[in-house]
Design a binder for these strands. Structure first.
Length: 544
RNA sequence: UGGGAUGUAGUGUAAUGGUAACACUGCAGAUUCUGGUUCUGCCUUUAGGGGUUCGAGUCCCUUCAUCCCAGCCA
C-alpha cells in the first residue's frame, strides 16, 4: 500500500495505543498492520504511547501493552516513544501558532463552545474571543500553563473555519486545562494537548511515513493534514484508514470490556473468556494463531463482522500441529478389566503428537481399573454409536481392545462400574488379524490418575451481535461460558506441564495450564477450544 | 435534510476494462489407533436502474442501503 511514496523505500509506521485499557484482538489487527507493513517493506515501526489524557491513563496499562506486543512477536527496538515526550515541542508550536495569529485562547464555557460550533447541517459561529489580540492570547496561554485558571475556564483553539462542513475543522481545541498528575511528566503540566494536535505532530517528529488508523478518524484527516503543515514542521506523514475488527459473539469496545471487568462478570482483564490479548493468552491461544487470524481477515475499508468460527479454526489449525497429546477424563466412570491381573501395571508407549514425530513419546500406566468418559458407554446404544456397550469391542487408545461384558449399578440405577475383558493380543492398540474396531476411547489408570481442575470455557455471548436484538449486551451473556470440573482424572504426565504449554486432551479439546492457579499440588487446566465434533452434530440432527 | 466513507457467496477477502475466485462456515462422502487430522465433492456472489464499450465487479449517471462525525476523549 503506497510504499512507493517513500523515495528510499524506508517506511516508518507507528502503533499508538492510548494506555487506558488492555490490548484486545482488535488492537492485534492494528499491530499487525503497523508492524507488518514496516516488516514487509523493510522499514521500522515505533511504539508510541498516546498519553495525552492523564485522567484516564495508567502505568499498569503501559506495562501490559508492552508485554502483549512482545508476546505477539513484534519488536519496536529502541523506537519507544510517548506523546508526552513532545510536550515541550508541542507547547512551543502552540505558542508560535498564537504569535502568527493562528490560535487563540477562548473563554467560552464548554456548553457555549458546543452552541457556537453549530450542528451537522448548520455552520458554526465564531467565538467572541476569536480576535483576541495576540499579546493577550500569549499572556492567557502562559497563565493557563502556570495554573492560574481553573479547569474548563479557558482553552486554546486553532483558528480554522467555523463554517466548515467538517466539524473537526471548526476551530478545534488544541490545549485544555487539567490539574491532573501524569504518569510520566508528573505535575509539570496542568495543560494537556488534544489528539488532533498531538498525534499528527508526534508522527511528524518521528518521521512517520504511513500513519494507519481506523475509519472513524477519516473525518480527522483534514485536521491531521493541517497540523502537519504548520510552519516549521518539515515532514508530512500521511494518514490511511482501515476498518476496525469486529468478531461475532464478542464485544470489543473498551467501555464494554471495562464494564465486564468492573461488574465482575468476568474475573479480570485476563479472564480466559475476554478477547483481550492477555485473556486469549491465558485461554491458551498461541500468538501465531492470532496473527494468522488477523492476516486471514485482511485489511479493507468496509465495516465488517468476522465470523468467530474463523478464529476457532485458526487456533485449532495451529494447536493441532503443536499441542502435546495427553489423556484426561472429565466425567469419569470406572472400568474393570476382569481378565487383567490384579496387581499388574504396564507402562505403554504413546505418541506425544501424531502430527509431529519429533515430539517423541511418553509412557502411560495401564492397570486393571481404569476411568473412561461416561459418555463413551451406552447401555442402549443409539444408531451409529460405535463406542462401548454390552457385547461391543472398542480400543483403548495406545493400549488394548476391550469388550464390555456387563455393568454394575447402584439402587438408583446409576452405573457404578463397567466390566470388560481385554484381548492381550491387542497390546498397543492393534491386532495381527487386522479386525476392525471402530471406537477408540481415551482412559486413565485409576490408581495412577491425578485429580485436576478443568475449566471449560465457551463463548461469552450467546448471539452473534451481543445487544443488537436485546438492546443490552449483558442480556446476551452465555450462562455456561465457564463450567468448572473440580475433579477430572488425568494421566500422571499432566503433573509436569507448565503455564504456556499447549496441550490436547485427546478427544476432549485443546487445553493449557492456567497461568495463575495451576500448580503441581493443584493442577488447573483451561480449555482453549473444543475439537470439532461431528458426532454430537449428528446426534442433534437425529433428534430432530 | 451538512460532510466523510463503504456496498462482490452465509462470513471475510481477491480479481491490467477480457472465463468472478480464495478461505472460513454449512452440507455430502472417503481415510483414520482422537467421531480429531487429512482428502474429495457440493451449495451460494458483483445492492437496484440506466449508460459508455465488441466486452463492465471495475468507467459515467442515478437510486437505494449501511457506517462515522456536533468531547475541553483518543
Amino acid at each position: 500500500m503506497a510504499a512507493n511514496r517513500v523515495p528510499n523505500g524506508q517506511i516508518v509506521t507507528r502503533f499508538p495505543p492510548e494506555p487506558n485499557g488492555y490490548l484486545h484482538i482488535g488492537h492485534a489487527k492494528a499491530i499487525c498492520i503497523d508492524f507488518g507493513m514496516a516488516e514487509k517493506y523493510g522499514g521500522r515501526c515505533h511504539l508510541r504511547m498516546d498519553d495525552t489524557n492523564p485522567e484516564k491513563e495508567d502505568q499498569e496499562y503501559i506495562d501490559s501493552i508492552k508485554t502483549d506486543i512482545r508476546w505477539l512477536g513484534f519488536d519496536w527496538g529502541d523506537y519507544e516513544y510517548h506523546a508526552s515526550d513532545y510536550y515541550d515541542q508541542l507547547h512551543a508550536i502552540a505558542v508560535n501558532l498564537i504569535k502568527q495569529g493562528m490560535a487563540y485562547v477562548d473563554s467560552l464555557s464548554a456548553e457555549q463552545v458546543r452552541e457556537y460550533r453549530g450542528t451537522l447541517t448548520e455552520p458554526g459561529r465564531e467565538s467572541p474571543d476569536r480576535n483576541r489580540p495576540i499579546e493577550e492570547n500569549l499572556k492567557l496561554f502562559a497563565e493557563m500553563r502556570q495554573g492560574k485558571h481553573p479547569e474548563g475556564s479557558l482553552v486554546l483553539r486553532a483558528k480554522l473555519d467555523m463554517a466548515s462542513p467538517n466539524i473537526n475543522m471548526r476551530d478545534p481545541a488544541l490545549y485544555r486545562i487539567k490539574f491532573a498528575s501524569h504518569p510520566r511528566t508528573g505535575d509539570k503540566w496542568c495543560i494537556y494537548p488534544m489528539y488532533d494536535f498531538t498525534h499528527p505532530i508526534s508522527d511528524a517528529i518521528e518521521g512517520i511515513t504511513h500513519s494507519f488508523c481506523t475509519l472513524e478518524f477519516e473525518d480527522h484527516r483534514p485536521a491531521y493534514d493541517w497540523a502537519t503543515s504548520i510552519d516549521g514542521i518539515d515532514h508530512a506523514p500521511r494518514q490511511y484508514e482501515f476498518a476496525r475488527l469486529n468478531i461475532t459473539h464478542f464485544v470489543l469496545s473498551k467501555r464494554k470490556l471495562l464494564n465486564l471487568v468492573k461488574s465482575k462478570i468476568v474475573g479480570g482483564w485476563d479472564d480466559p473468556r475476554m478477547p483481550t490479548l492477555c485473556g486469549l493468552r491465558r485461554r491458551g491461544y498461541s500468538p501465531e494463531s492470532i496473527k494468522d487470524f488477523v492476516n486471514r481477515v485482511g485489511v479493507a475499508k468496509v465495516e465488517s463482522i468476522v465470523d468467530y468460527n474463523l478464529l476457532e479454526f485458526c487456533v485449532r489449525e495451529d494447536l493441532n500441529k503443536r499441542a502435546t497429546r495427553m489423556m484426561a477424563v472429565l466425567d469419569p466412570v470406572k472400568v474393570v478389566i476382569t481378565n487383567y491381573p490384579e496387581d499388574q501395571v504396564e507402562w505403554l508407549l504413546a505418541d506425544n503428537n501424531p502430527e509431529n514425530p519429533a515430539a517423541g513419546q511418553r509412557k502411560i500406566p495401564f492397570s486393571r481399573e481404569l476411568y473412561i468418559e461416561r459418555e463413551d458407554f451406552m447401555e442402549v446404544p443409539v444408531k451409529g454409536y460405535h463406542r462401548l456397550y454390552i457385547g461391543n469391542e472398542v480400543r483403548l487408545k495406545h493400549a488394548y481392545y476391550i469388550t464390555c461384558t456387563g455393568i454394575e449399578k447402584d439402587a438408583d440405577g446409576n452405573i457404578l462400574e463397567i466390566r470388560c475383558t481385554y484381548d492381550p493380543e491387542s497390546k498397543g492398540g492393534m491386532t495381527e488379524d487386522g479386525r476392525k474396531v471402530k471406537g477408540t476411547s481415551h482412559w486413565v489408570s485409576a490408581r495412577h490418575a491425578i485429580d485436576c481442575e478443568v475449566r471449560l470455557y465457551d463463548k461469552l455471548f450467546l448471539v452473534e451481535n451481543p445487544g443488537v436484538a436485546t438492546g443490552n449486551y449483558l442480556d446476551d451473556l452465555n450462562p455456561e461460558s465457564l463450567v468448572v470440573i473440580p475433579e477430572a482424572k488425568g494421566e500422571p504426565a499432566l503433573l509436569d506441564t507448565h503455564s504456556g504449554d499447549y496441550l490436547q486432551f485427546i478427544r476432549n479439546g485443546y487445553f493449557t495450564p492456567d497461568s495463575k492457579d495451576h500448580s503441581k499440588k493443584h493442577p488447573v487446566f483451561n480449555r482453549t477450544a473444543t475439537l470439532k465434533d461431528s458426532w454430537s452434530k449428528k446426534l442433534q440432527k437425529n433428534d430432530r
